[in-house]
Simulated scan of single mutants.
Amino acid sequence: MEENPRAYALQTIYKKIYKQLWSLNLPSKVKVTIWRLSWNYLPTKVNLQHRKLAANTSCPRCGQRAETMNHVFRECPVTVDIWRALSFQNILTNQCEDFIQWLTWAVEQLNPRQGQIFYCTLWAVWGDRNKRVHEGKVSNGKDTASFINSYIKELTDFENRDLKKGKEIRKWMYPQSEFVKINFDGAYKETQNRSASGIVVRDSEGHVLLSYSKIHDGVSSPFAAEAIACWTAVKIGIDKGWQSLIFEGDSLAIIKRCNTKEQDRLMVGTYIYDIQKKIFGLNNISFQHTSRSANNLAHILATATLRSGEEVYLEMGVPEYVEDQERQDRMREPN
């Protein structure tokens, strides 16, 4: 692989990037690509050569130089044209040769709105590169810049539409009669690389079978915190011997990964792999995405545990501080 500083150093450097990235109105697929990019996990030609999977390191878009991270996102003429078409050419003025330093410098120059465009552009540049490699599709800088502008407009339109609708709160839904539903959520504290998992198990009548929370140390990101929470929920469900299970969380990226059979190469891939091993051969298992408002009980458990440091294990009940939320959930109409 290309030069990759030690993980602990990177975690400190990336705090500002992750804090801004996870707060922006961007799809999970964009955020995950940026996360992979920041850890140099993208299969550039140079990275593939280091893994002995490619002999030719030339950039597939311009063919002029070796395809390093710097070249893909800063130096390739096609990429330069994209930044210029978006009026972002000022981020190319930094002459630092280290990609990570350039990335952190660029983020510091941008306000949230510009950051949204910047991250979306990095994602689109990698997507354009992959279309060239895998589909033979060729786009120029203006075409890609036009796509980015349209994509950002679509995101903004959706955001404005949701604001106009007001706060439409989705409600926790009762599972079908034979199912047990396990809601999970992860809370993350970046200053300590610590997370907490909140787990609530309920039957088809809305009765709480178990409420549980656990603190985890050495966690690298909010994304990892969600993966660990999901893994914890699955472990509880399988260990308890419940046969028909619905695992429900508000992290769409994690739910999608649990529902796919493909091997996940991200850092959280070990948790996803272990989840799939645990449920192998079981038929009445499903992973469902829901909104934060419908997952609030697990969310409160996770955040309160992370704040107080006090873990929870209660059968047939919940801690006192979430009793009001639990009653509100039971008042919902069964589906």
Score class of each variant (00 low, 15 high):
I169E: 09
E323G: 09
R332C: 09
V72S: 07
F223Y: 14
A55L: 14
L42E: 03
S28Q: 08
F88K: 14
F147D: 07
I13R: 15
F73R: 11
R292Q: 12
E310G: 04
T68D: 10
N90T: 08
L26D: 01
F147I: 14
F280T: 12
F280V: 04
R161K: 13
G309W: 07
R6T: 02
L210K: 07
E262W: 08
D329A: 11
Q192T: 10
R194W: 08
D81Q: 14
W35S: 07
A145S: 11
H50A: 15
Y273K: 15
F179Y: 11
M69E: 01
K137I: 13
L306I: 05
S146K: 15
W105F: 04
L252G: 00
D264S: 10
L53Q: 13
M1N: 09
I17V: 12
F88L: 04
F184K: 00
A253T: 09
Q109N: 09
E135I: 06
H299F: 03
I148K: 15
F247W: 04
W102V: 02
E326C: 13
I254S: 02
S23L: 11
S308D: 15
E154T: 09
E154Y: 09
A9D: 03
L21G: 02
C59I: 00
N25G: 04
Q89T: 07
S308H: 09
A304Q: 14
A294N: 00
L122T: 11
I285P: 06
L53K: 12
W39P: 05
M331W: 02
L10W: 04
D203H: 13
N70G: 06
K278Q: 09
S58M: 12
